[in-house]
């Protein structure tokens, strides 16, 4: 019982036949080849499969693809600029040595996109809470927090908004 499914994935309209029981993670990985979407638990515990659906971070392993029908989906494959430049968040992860094995990295980067996109600043503790749905065993989160904090500050500086709250 294949159904027609459509969405805008990384800026491109996509139309596919899918099984309505399929998770969004499986559709993105298996049908679209977007293998940055990692699976570490398949029950929404680890956050590795995080993608943005209409700008909101979701665990795509426990999110039916049908729920994302007609929506905007973003994975890290869609983050680079057209000329290939890394997005500021990706750049911050690279330069802050926030990447180790890299398996949790795409998911956390997407949460960071959501955080940065909120247009406000956060305390370190607020950032800890915001990324606490992502498990990482390599980094102790230290450099990940440094990268997210840097991306938040840079975005805020760029937008020229209110003073940072410390």
């Amino acid at each position: 019982m294949i159904q027609v499914w459509n969405a805008v994935v990384n800026g491109q309209p996509v139309e596919l036949g899918i099984d309505p029981r399929e998770s969004l993670a499986d559709v993105l990985r298996e049908r679209l080849g977007l293998t940055s979407v990692k699976k570490g638990c398949e029950v929404g515990e680890c956050g590795a499969c995080t993608v943005l659906v209409d700008g909101t971070a979701v665990d795509s392993c426990i999110y039916l693809a049908l729920w994302a029908r007609g929506k905007q989906i973003l994975t890290v494959e869609g983050l680079q600029e057209p000329d290939g430049a890394l997005s500021p968040i990706q750049k911050a992860f690279v330069e802050e040595a926030a990447v180790q094995c890299g398996f949790c990295t795409p998911g956390i980067i997407l949460s960071a996109v959501e955080i940065v996109g909120s247009g406000r600043t956060y305390t370190r503790d607020e950032l800890r809470k915001l990324i606490s749905g992502h498990l990482c065993r390599c980094t102790g989160y230290q450099n990940i927090l440094n990268a997210v904090e840097r991306a938040v500050h840079e975005a805020h500086k760029f937008v020229g908004g209110e003073e940072t709250q410390e």
């Binding site: 977007l34 293998t35 940055s36 994975t75 890290v76 494959e77 983050l79 680079q80 890394l86 990706q90 992860f93 690279v94 330069e95 040595a97 990447v99 890299g102 990295t105 795409p106 980067i109």
Partner: peptide
């Protein structure tokens, strides 16, 4: 910078 960092942040 790690030699694999770029590939890991771009998926």
């Amino acid at each position: 910078v790690r030699v694999d960092a770029f590939d890991k942040v771009t998926g």
